[in-house]
């Protein structure tokens, strides 16, 4: 008997695909287990025992709170800036054909297409030359730059899917440019902007390479983690922080997926 060719994949393929997915997910699951281990000096496996006490310890760590707070503030402001710049850019590129349109798209994508270290060191040396001291705003400057592309990708995809005659129809019915934006354009791109904003937030919240060059002495949460990675001092706290970061970044990604799943590609390449 032969199996139905259309429905069944070859067993080898099934196993390889399942193994690939497992390879992508098991290490993340491992983090979740380590957050509960009683061992605090080594990365011992299997954990000698399970405990919840590290959550309480982490909760009472001011340095973790400060880093988290800085990360959230940076990510919020960067996302806001990226939302404005990305939407403006997408509107300009989609609505009109003008000389240099390709160049604009290229410049938007460049900050994530080139390795982060190039963006980072460029900004740092520019700050040096211009004599700008490191501050909250130097971090934001870097983050907003590479977040623009995520918003831009989402907005362009939605603009393309939205019929251009909607804007004309609105003006035809008596609405001026601002009314058209308020009543027609915004409602139609809102979910795409929300998705783009969430991805931008996740991207900024997690960024470490550019940040190491623009933060000076300040520590965002990823910088705090990087220091722990290079010189582990408090492994259990790091484990808990890692787990929280995983859970916190999953939510906006899931939300962005559900907001854009009919038709749009979530701008997954936007990193």
């Amino acid at each position: 008997m032969r199996s139905d060719k259309r429905s069944g994949a070859p067993t080898g393929l099934k196993i390889a695909a399942a193994a690939g997915l497992a390879f992508m997910h098991l290490p993340i699951l491992l983090i979740l287990v380590y957050a509960f281990t009683t061992e605090d000096k080594t990365y011992q496996w299997p954990p000698p025992g399970l405990t919840l006490k590290w959550f309480a310890v982490t909760w009472n760590r001011p340095d973790v709170w400060e880093a988290l707070q800085l990360s959230v503030r940076v990510a919020s402001i960067s996302t806001a800036i990226a939302l404005v710049l990305g939407t403006l850019c997408a509107a300009a590129v989609v609505r009109t054909k003008f000389f240099g349109r390709e160049a604009i798209s290229l410049i938007v994508i460049l900050p994530i297409a080139l390795p982060g270290i190039i963006t980072g060191i460029s900004l740092r040396s520019a700050f040096n030359i211009a004599d700008i001291p490191f501050s909250f705003w130097t971090i934001v400057l870097g983050h907003a730059t590479f977040c623009v592309v995520v918003v831009y990708n989402n907005a362009v995809a939605r603009f393309r899917r939205t019929s251009g005659s909607l804007i004309e129809a609105s003006m035809d019915l008596g609405a001026n440019g601002f009314q058209t934006f308020r009543y027609v354009v915004l409602p139609n791109i809102a979910t795409a902007l929300l998705a783009g904003g969430m991805l931008a937030f996740a991207l900024s919240f997690d960024e470490v390479i550019v940040t190491t060059f623009t933060a000076g002495q300040q520590a965002t949460l990823p910088i705090w983690m990087l220091e722990e990675l290079v010189r582990p001092r408090q492994r259990p706290v790091t484990n808990v922080v890692a787990m929280v970061v995983i859970l916190v970044t999953f939510l906006p990604i899931l939300a962005a997926y559900y907001l854009t799943r009919d038709g749009d590609q979530v701008a997954g390449h936007g990193r």
Partner: peptide, 27 residues
């Protein structure tokens, strides 16, 4: 266009997808 007392029925109709039929007509 918004200052002309002229209205258009578009080839693809260009109905606002986020509004109900009533709100489209009353736009």
């Amino acid at each position: 266009p918004y200052r002309r007392n002229v209205n258009t029925v578009f080839q693809d109709y260009a109905l606002f997808p986020h509004l109900s039929v009533m709100d489209n007509v009353a736009y």
